[in-house]
Nucleic acid binder design. Sequence first.
DNA 1: GCGTCTTATATTCAGGTCGAGTATAACCGG
DNA 2: CCGGTTATACTCGACCTGAATATAAGACGC
Lengths: 319, 319
Amino acid sequence: MDDHAKGIRKGTGVSNANDIKADLIAVVVAVNDHEPRVLTIGRANALPSGPFELGHRSLQSGLRSWVEEQTGQPLGYIEQLYTFADRDRVGTGQRVISISYLALTREEEATQSDRRRWERWYDYFPWEDHRSGTPSILSKVLRPRLLKWADSAGDNETRRERRQRSAVAFGFDDGTWNEELTLQRYELLYEAAMVGEATGGQSSAARSVAGESMIADHRRILATGIARLRSKIKYRPVVFELMPPVFSLLQLQRTVEALAGRLLHKPNFRRLIEQQELVEQTGETTADTGGRPAKLYRFRHAVLDERAVAGTKLPLTRA
Amino acid sequence: MDDHAKGIRKGTGVSNANDIKADLIAVVVAVNDHEPRVLTIGRANALPSGPFELGHRSLQSGLRSWVEEQTGQPLGYIEQLYTFADRDRVGTGQRVISISYLALTREEEATQSDRRRWERWYDYFPWEDHRSGTPSILSKVLRPRLLKWADSAGDNETRRERRQRSAVAFGFDDGTWNEELTLQRYELLYEAAMVGEATGGQSSAARSVAGESMIADHRRILATGIARLRSKIKYRPVVFELMPPVFSLLQLQRTVEALAGRLLHKPNFRRLIEQQELVEQTGETTADTGGRPAKLYRFRHAVLDERAVAGTKLPLTRA
DNA sequence: GCGTCTTATATTCAGGTCGAGTATAACCGG
DNA sequence: CCGGTTATACTCGACCTGAATATAAGACGC
């Protein structure tokens, strides 16, 4: 298609001291068995990633080829997350820019293999899953240790500010849990040296209380992806990227709940989905659910053309 | 503060064929005299930009120093827009990554100088300003030419799809104008070769109908910044970054209207601002407005701590 | 100094959205 | 055929939001 890329001759680039490298990093998400999962390579607790190269037609296609090479997983929906520059790595004097992406893929394609592992989100972030009530780790471990950290500050103003930030991010004072603050919460725990990455990984105590660690800043990138996805499902119909072609409304609800980490009000969820005309009936039903057979639906791809913004605004409620 | 940065020795970096350059590009916005403006360098119709260098502590600080060096303008609020990779530029065989940012600054600091110019948004995007009704250019020029472009497609499906996209982005069919679709609209006009950048700048006719051009893809980046800002003022209190320390509620409303490119319902705007407790009275009034003196307000910086998400959801209405 | 103009500020009303609860329908397994 | 289980339908009230109207306070001309 594009003869431009072929014309690149390796090594003709003029390099100088300001040249840098760019890494592409992917947060690939699927929902399996009511559990949101992230794609990792091997047992290294690392996200798939690789350098942006001359042969790549674009950043996105570079990302796709790295993920496919490392894990065999083809990617569908992709969106950019964030670009940041690391401090120079281990004294090479060269900077590395990391460009991170969020990718969504379907359950059926998300099979295990020796090259890839699908790890549960909430193994890395145990405090983020509120589907069976507020996790006890919040009040029993995180809250006291965050308070201790706040009070260990030198001046009064810092103490007040740390308590304030913790209370807002974790909903300590008013009991209000905002599922979109995943990144802020992780950053607080990092600052307070309560996650493995911040303590150099030597503290197994920290690791057990504050979830599984990942290499480098990959867990922070995962937190960014989770936060973005939790926010986006409320105003764009991206959930359907994670669904099989045909599904029941309860399956859809369970998927949204898995991502948001909280339960939803069933009648309101149905009302919202139906009145937005995001789905249409297939005419078939399934009896797999135990009770009355559920009607099956499929996503109306047409809405992507019809409307610029098709919200899925999920009702943010308890059950 | 940070001894890490000092440790970088120039020239020790190992360069190879996959090394690249990274450009930092800034969309700096201020609102002056009820007109949203963007900072450009000289009369070149170019956004301030420069390469990310080893000496830069971070991407953001690199951006700040480039903008300040090129325009003398110090930056306050900054947020990342998007990162993209150009096709290789003029056969050097080297790729360039562009990292774009949106910056907001205050009116008083936005004075002209010989190095910088504050250009009006709507000189580049005349069809985006709906404050005095729907611009006639929409129905008189853009709509017929977009339809012609749609019908010039080879197959039926492409024609249908082009008409559909145009209608949604510009609100042709239902008259619904969505001010957040600035980028989609620009991209459509680009595809239809109705903007100067797409025709190599030789067509002065295209230039006069579809706004002032900019170099390279800077106008597209500006469109991205406008879209982001128009979206963000609805759920984050970023408008105040553009306001003087003390202001009346009507001044605030006029600023929001300038950004959104549409008029708002006055009583509802006041109600929303007040009930969200975003501002507090200074106790003073101003008689500069001609009628009854207006109370003056200031932004309550405390809300940034108190709440994680402080919405400014502006009522999207006509006057 | 008084009426009029202009803008600021306050109040009211109706339709829609949203959280929450309750009722009915359909299939299964014994 | 009856209780258990899940699906689907309907209802209610609080609150949000678009829209219009009413009142207050200064400026200005005569």
